[in-house]
Simulated scan of single mutants.
Amino acid sequence: MDLRQMEVVVAVAEEGGFTAAAQRLHVVQSAVSSTVRALERELGTPLFDRTTHRVSLTAAGEAFVPAARLALRAAEQARAAVDLARGQLRGRLTVGTMQGVWADLHKPLAALRAEHPGVVVRLRQAAVTDIRQALREGTVDLAVVALDRQQQRGLVTRLLSHEEMVLVSAPRRTLAASGPGGTVTLAETARLPLVDFAPGWAIRLSVDRAFRAAAVERETTFEVNDIVAAAELVRNDLGVCVMPASIAARFPDLGTHAFDRHAPHWKVMLVRPAGEPPPLVAALLRHMN
């Protein structure tokens, strides 16, 4: 068994098929199939159930893939350690992120690339629950996300920013002011058509917690998984949306309204697995202030 065989099996598992894995690895499909068959013969058991419509992991495959990921990760870290000793880092760094937090990443990534041009950075954008799982599985090296206290267990975190969320509306929509400075309440918000983000999104989790704490029930009118789509619905006055103030600032033509109390909070953190960070992660951490 060698690292290349492990890489091929992991690619098939993650891509869901031999053709997609071959495209990812830049080889022909027959090479992927023969590599998997050879490893299955060596292990004495199939790793995949193959049908005409789909490829899925067997029980043995489910056990093999996480261990293979760890082995591949260890090999990358070993190569990175040697490169560091030679004064130049190379390799691949996978960074998990959510929509709307790119501003926290572009300067550190630019500094990392300037210092170590041989490093390839992969940005993986997903829901916060998926990123958290990827950190635990080792498929993401570190992430810039918003996690609640329970989600932080077993991970190393560092707070990057903390702010309150605001209600965003179309410029022509008039909201009855319920507090000083034109603030709004969650109860008033619940009576408006709401644009919500999909379950699992950090914004949605924070908004759900705030409404529960205020003992206010709400109904979602539109559910989206894209910030630009949410802003477009609001712009056309199809609903209002709760989002972090820093994200709302990217749409200056929309109206923003602070909450008088029970405002959802938005904490963006740098998150990584516990333990000593590998060289590539450590190099990026030095630029994350």
Results as ranks from 00 to 15, higher is better:
Met288Tyr: 10
Thr183Gly: 06
Val27Ser: 07
Val140Tyr: 08
Val166Gln: 04
Val10Arg: 08
Leu109Lys: 02
Arg136Ala: 13
Glu232Pro: 06
Glu188Tyr: 06
Leu47Met: 05
Ala229Arg: 14
Ala231Val: 05
Glu163Asn: 06
Arg173Lys: 15
Ala13His: 00
Leu233Glu: 07
Thr45Glu: 12
Glu115Met: 02
His106Gln: 04
Gln23Ala: 06
Asp2Gln: 05
Ala248Tyr: 04
Lys267Asp: 08
Asn236Val: 05
Val268Asp: 00
Pro171Glu: 13
Ala146Cys: 12
Leu89His: 04
Ile203Val: 14
Val216Ser: 05
Gln29Ser: 03
Leu186Arg: 03
Gly255Ala: 14
Arg149Thr: 14
Arg124Thr: 09
Arg86His: 07
Arg158Trp: 00
Leu186Phe: 09
Val145Arg: 02
Glu115Trp: 00
His265Phe: 03
Ala187Asn: 05
His26Arg: 15
Arg172Asp: 13
Glu232Val: 09
Ala20Trp: 08
Val168Pro: 01
Ser206His: 10
Pro273His: 06
Thr97Trp: 09
Ala249Gly: 02
Val120Asp: 08
Leu123Thr: 07
Ala245Asn: 01
Val8Arg: 04
Val144Ile: 14
Arg261Pro: 05
Gly91Met: 08
Val228Thr: 13
Ala258His: 04
Ala274Thr: 15
Glu42Gly: 02
Val65Tyr: 01
Leu142Arg: 00
Asp130Val: 07
Met6Thr: 01
Ser56Trp: 04
Ala231Tyr: 15
Arg24Ala: 13
Ala67Asn: 00
Met165Glu: 12
Ile247Gly: 10
Arg218Gly: 01
Val234Tyr: 14
Arg272Ser: 15
Leu254Cys: 11
Met1His: 08
Ala231Gly: 12
Gly255Tyr: 15
Met1Pro: 07
Ala229Ser: 11
Leu284Val: 10
His106Met: 06
Arg172Met: 06
His257Ile: 15
Asp226Trp: 12
Glu62Gly: 09
Pro279Ile: 14
His26Trp: 04
Phe251Ala: 10
Leu159Ile: 01
Asn236Ser: 11
Ala213Met: 09
Leu93Lys: 07
Arg153Gln: 15
Val145Ala: 10
Thr52Pro: 01
Ala63Arg: 15
Gly100Cys: 05
Gly138Lys: 05
Asp253His: 13
Met6Trp: 04
Phe222Gln: 07
Asp208Lys: 04
Gly61Met: 03
Arg24Cys: 04
Met288Pro: 11
Pro273Met: 03
Arg79Lys: 14
Leu25Trp: 04
Arg250Phe: 06
Val128Lys: 08
Val27His: 06
Leu3Asp: 13
Gln151Ser: 13
Ala176Met: 10
Arg149Asn: 13
Met165Leu: 13
Val240Ala: 13
Leu285Tyr: 00
Pro108Thr: 06
Arg286Glu: 15
Gly154Asn: 09
Gln99Lys: 12
Gly275Thr: 15
Arg212Asn: 12
Gly61Phe: 05
Ser161Val: 00
Glu164Arg: 03
Arg191Asn: 06
Thr97Val: 00
Leu238Gly: 13
Val36Arg: 11
Ala229Cys: 01
Ala20Met: 10
His287Cys: 14
Leu135His: 10
Leu155Asn: 09
Phe222Gly: 07
Val168Cys: 11
Ile227Phe: 04
Ala63Val: 01
Ser56Leu: 03
Ala202Asp: 11
Ala11Trp: 02
Gly179Trp: 07
Phe211Gly: 09
Arg73Thr: 12
Glu115Ile: 05
Thr139Val: 15
Arg124Gln: 11
